[in-house]
Computed example of a mutant assay.
Amino acid sequence: MLTERLDRFERADGSEIGRMALMGIYEIEGDHIVAWRDYFDVNAVSKLAAG
Rank of each mutant, 00 (worst) to 15 (best):
I33M: 10
G14F: 02
I25S: 08
G51C: 08
M23F: 08
S46Q: 14
L22W: 02
I33F: 02
M23N: 09
I33P: 01
K47V: 04
E29H: 08
D38P: 01
A44S: 14
L6D: 02
M23E: 10
S15K: 13
A35H: 12
L22F: 01
L22G: 00
G51D: 12
D7G: 03
I17S: 02
K47R: 12
M1F: 00
D38F: 04
E4L: 12
Y39R: 06
A49M: 15
Y39Q: 03
G30H: 09
R8C: 11
E27M: 06
M20T: 01
V34H: 03
M20I: 15
R37K: 14
V42F: 13
A21M: 05
D41V: 00
S46D: 10
E16S: 11
W36N: 05
V34Q: 07
A44C: 11
K47D: 11
M23A: 13
Y26C: 07
A35Q: 10
Y39T: 09
G51V: 07
E10I: 00
L2W: 05
G24H: 00
L48A: 06
S46H: 10
A49T: 06
A12L: 15
K47H: 13
D38V: 04
V45G: 01
K47F: 05
A12R: 15
D31W: 00
W36P: 02
D7W: 11
L2E: 04
S46F: 09
A49Q: 12
E27Y: 09
G51M: 07
I28R: 10
M23R: 14
E10A: 14
L48K: 05
S46G: 08
Y26D: 01
A12C: 09
D13A: 13
A49Y: 02
A44R: 13
G30R: 09
Y26E: 02
A35S: 10
A12H: 15
G18P: 08
G14I: 02
F40E: 06
G51H: 11
A49I: 06
D38M: 03
E16W: 08
E16G: 06
M23H: 12
S46R: 15
M20P: 00
A44P: 12
R5E: 08
V34P: 02
S15R: 14
E27A: 10
R8E: 13
I17R: 13
D7F: 02
A50W: 08
D38C: 03
G24K: 01
K47Q: 09
R8T: 14
H32W: 02
A50S: 15
R11L: 15
K47C: 01
D7A: 12
S46V: 13
M1H: 00
A49L: 15
R5K: 14
G24R: 05
F9Q: 11
R19N: 02
F40S: 08
E10P: 01
L22C: 02
